[in-house]
């Protein structure tokens, strides 16, 4: 589990004045769903809903770091949960930079976040996760980065090729690498820029494609540890 980006999310949100609770939640069901295991995914969805329902009823928003998990809440759960449960999860869940964008748009002080300057480059290249793009939420990350003063170039490949577990399957390994090549060459064209990627599997793929140490945008903009 990649805890760095979760901790960064907490630091960033708290700095922006948000009171954060980190609940222990069961898996979202993305893994079984991706394997066509619909009834297992359904079980997971119900389990997850049961674990967050009290928080939602208390009026909290659910902020999600991994885009494929958010896509479950906003899209896939429509097929897995009763309508009102789906609606309440979908309506109250946010991608972390979407949330930050909303806070800043509404007057939160973005100065608390890490902008360019010092040893931090102004130039970044951002690869948005495929499902994040489908949700239309890549724009919020770009919006936050630009508001902080970064110069952002966005990749335009449709997918990094890793796609969850796909690239780990032996029969699809070479295809996954071939798909990744397109992303690799775009990133190489932007050689001087810091690489940001919003999906865990995208980060893995980029890590294996080039030596550029990609980070999640929230880790990039979160205030450093006190």
């Amino acid at each position: 589990m990649n805890v760095g980006r979760g901790k960064a999310a907490v630091r960033a949100l708290e700095a922006l004045g948000v009171a954060v609770t980190v609940p222990t939640l069961p898996p979202s069901g993305r893994a079984p769903l991706s394997q066509g295991m619909v009834s297992t995914a359904q079980e997971r969805a119900s389990g997850l809903y049961a674990a967050v329902v009290d928080h939602l009823r208390a009026g909290k928003d659910l902020v999600v770091v991994e885009p494929s998990t958010l896509a479950m809440f906003r899209n896939d759960y429509e097929h897995l949960l009763p309508a009102e449960r789906f609606d309440s999860l979908a309506d109250n869940s946010y991608e972390v930079l979407e949330y930050v964008f909303g806070l800043v748009e509404n007057g939160a002080d973005s100065e608390v976040l890490a902008g360019p300057g010092g040893d931090r480059d102004r130039a970044v290249v951002y690869h948005p996760h495929c499902q994040q793009r489908t949700l239309g939420l890549d724009a919020h990350t770009v919006g936050v980065l630009e508001a902080l003063g970064y110069d952002v170039v966005t990749s335009d490949v449709e997918c990094c090729g890793m796609a969850g577990s796909f690239g780990y399957k032996s029969e699809y390994y070479e295809l996954s690498v071939d798909v990744g090549r397109a992303l690799g060459s775009q990133l190489r064209e932007e050689a001087g820029r810091r690489v940001l990627a919003s999906g865990t599997s995208c980060t893995d793929q980029i890590d294996s494609l080039l030596d550029r140490d990609p980070v999640h945008p929230i880790e990039f903009v979160a205030p450093s540890r006190a």
Partner: peptide, 20 residues
């Protein structure tokens, strides 16, 4: 051998500070 690709939601917050 790998980082988990199916992470759970990381944080929830108390205030409805952002709305679509």
């Amino acid at each position: 051998w790998s980082r988990c690709s199916a992470s759970t939601p990381a944080v929830t917050c108390r205030h409805s500070a952002a709305r679509r």
